[in-house]
């Protein structure tokens, strides 16, 4: 297995936060944390870059809205101009309904694909799943993962184990 992980399981979200901060201070570059729910501050603790999802949604939403409005305008005014109840060809207020709904839909679709893409999902197999802690993580387990190929990891991990009482167990995968 090419990828490998060092998984340190802790007992609570607070421990996880503390451990993550410590690990980062120790200079671990590629680390990740796992929790059964969102843990406020974990992103900062891991120094995650801001999520691109919302920007994608803004672009997707505005793009879809602009496209559908332009499309309505073109079909009504140029493509197939018909007199419908004496309304002007460019009945733009009436066009806004589809524009809004499509915009929201576009944002949602862009957001969802962006979310999956950012998360690297779907990914049915991942080294983390090999860990004994993986199953606990969706229940009540908290874990910090380090890349064991990091030459420092194996050494520092021992230090951590020694210095951090909150760590319950450590496994090395791969």
């Amino acid at each position: 297995m090419s990828a490998a992980l060092l998984v340190a399981r802790v007992g609570s979200a607070d421990d996880l936060l503390a451990l993550a901060r410590a690990a980062r201070e120790l200079g671990f570059a590629t680390l990740d944390a796992h929790a059964p729910h969102t843990v406020e501050g974990l992103g900062e603790a891991l120094a995650l870059p801001p999520s691109p999802v919302r920007s994608l949604m803004l672009v997707g939403g505005l793009g879809a809205a602009a496209a559908i409005f332009a499309y309505q305008y073109w079909t009504s005014v140029h493509g197939y101009p018909i007199n419908s109840g004496g309304r002007p060809l460019n009945s733009w207020p009436a066009f806004l309904f589809a524009t809004f709904e499509t915009g929201v839909l576009g944002a949602a679709l862009a957001g969802f694909t962006g979310f999956l893409w950012s998360c690297g999902l779907p990914r049915p197999s991942h080294p983390f799943f090999e860990a004994a802690a993986a199953r606990a993580v969706t229940d009540d387990g908290y874990a910090l993962t380090l890349d064991p190929r990091d030459p420092r990891a194996r050494i520092d991990a021992l230090d951590i184990l020694r210095t951090r009482p909150e760590i319950l167990s450590v496994e090395v995968i791969g």
Binding site: A20, D32, A33, H34, A35, P36, H37, T38, V39, L42, G43, L46, L48, S51, V53, G114, F115, S118, C119, G120, L121, P122, R123, P124, S125, H126, F128, F129, A134, V137, T138
Partner: peptide, 11 residues
Amino acid sequence: GWRGSARHWHH
């Protein structure tokens, strides 16, 4: 393949 990763939760 949800792993409860901090990155997942972040996004």
